[in-house]
Structures are given as structure tokens and as C-alpha cells.
Amino acid sequence: MKLQAIDKQLYRSRLNIVMVACIATLAISSLAISQALIYLFPSPSGSNFHWNLLGVIVGAIGLVLVLLKLKTHPKMREVVYVWELKQTLNLIYRKNRKLLAAAEKGNADAMLALQFSYEGSRQLWQLDDNTITMSSLNTAQANLNQWAQKYGVTIDINDYDSAILKQF
């Protein structure tokens, strides 16, 4: 994955549209499905919990399938990019302890993964207006810069590939 420049206002407006559409679709589809099931298979006891639950499950599965189908639509580009960035950062975060230990010992791949994580997190936090923890990110970045300088490592996040995480 490569980091891309994203227009914050465009991203926020498209994310809001996707969220509202998902909520409305899930609510309408689950209600419609559960009401149809209740109409077709009425319960003599009057409890329709299982039909309501099935309606929500089928509605959610349908929504996921529609989102996967629309994932390549041009108007979903920013939302999908951020979604994929969050998944990539989560993969790196799961190996963070090992990456930090390896970077401190001079491992260039660990430093590259950490740099990608820091740059991606910075972009993500700015897009989501979550700059409260930016100081801790800056501290981690300063440590990484010291290690890179100490071991003479040049870090270019354009070289990042998630395959390097397999060694950690």
C-alpha cells in the first residue's frame, strides 16, 4: 500500500454519505425482511425474536455484499483508501513491540514499517480530526529518526510493502 493525498472535506462528505446510506439500508432491509418472515411464518407464541434476528443478519450480509460490489466505484475511492489504510496500520500495530525492538537494533525493514505506520497514522488522525495524541507520535518519530541516523538507514515509505512484516 502506498500513502496517497486525500482531500479531507471530500473524504468527510463521502464518508458521511456512506454511513447514512449504510444505516438507512440496514434499518430498512432488516425491518422489511423480518416483517416478511413474520407474515409468512407467524409464531403461535407471539415471539418473533428469531425472525427479527434473522432479518438483521440477512440485511447485514446484503449490505456487506453491496459495499464489496461498490468498493471499486470512483466515489468510494477516499473511503476505501482510509479503510485499507486502517487495516494496514492494524497489521503493523500487532507487530509493534517486535518492530520497535528490531528497529532499535538497526533493522532497516522494521524502521521502514514503523515509518509507514507513523506517516499513515499522522494522515489518518488529521483526516479524522484526532490530533490529541500527536505528541506521542512525534516522540516515537524522534526515536525512530535517532535510530535511523545512528545506523545510517535511509527510510523511504514508498518502498514499504506489507510482506516485510512476515519476518517479525
Rank of each mutant, 00 (worst) to 15 (best):
F41P: 01
L114R: 10
L70W: 11
L165I: 01
L91D: 00
K86S: 09
E104V: 00
L89W: 09
K71L: 01
Q123W: 10
R77Y: 15
A140S: 08
Q9L: 07
W125T: 03
D109S: 15
S135A: 13
L54G: 05
V20H: 09
D129P: 08
E119C: 14
V56T: 12
I28H: 03
D7G: 00
T133D: 02
A148F: 13
W147G: 01
H73K: 08
A60Y: 14
L68D: 08
S117T: 02
N90K: 06
N107K: 10
G152K: 03
V18A: 01
K166M: 13
Q126I: 09
S136M: 14
G120Q: 10
A36V: 01
I17N: 08
N107C: 13
S47G: 09
F116W: 10
R12S: 07
L91V: 04
W51H: 03
L144K: 07
A108S: 15
N158I: 06
S135R: 13
K150G: 01
A140G: 05
G59L: 03
Y160Q: 02
Q115Y: 13
F49M: 05
K105F: 13
R122C: 09
Q4Y: 12
R12Q: 14
D109V: 05
L31A: 02
I6H: 04
F49P: 02
I61R: 11
L54F: 15
S45M: 05
V58W: 14
M1E: 09
L68C: 06
V66T: 00
S43E: 04
A5N: 15
L137W: 14
L70A: 06
L85P: 01
K95W: 06
K95C: 00
L37D: 03
A140L: 04
M134H: 06
K71N: 06
A60H: 14
I57V: 07
L144I: 06
I61M: 12
G59S: 09
A140V: 11
N143M: 12
E78S: 10
S43N: 04
L63S: 07
R14N: 00
S121T: 15
L54T: 04
I17V: 02
N52Q: 13
I17S: 10
A24F: 10
I38G: 04
I28V: 03
K71Y: 14
A110D: 07
V66I: 03
N16M: 02
T131M: 02
S29E: 06
A140N: 07
A140P: 02
Q4W: 14
T133L: 08
N145Y: 09
N145E: 11
K2Q: 15
L15W: 08
S30E: 01
Y39W: 15
I61V: 14
Q146R: 12
V80F: 07
L37I: 01
Q126K: 15
L112T: 05
F116Y: 15
W51Q: 01
G46R: 09
G120D: 11
I61H: 13
N145F: 10
L100W: 14
M134W: 08
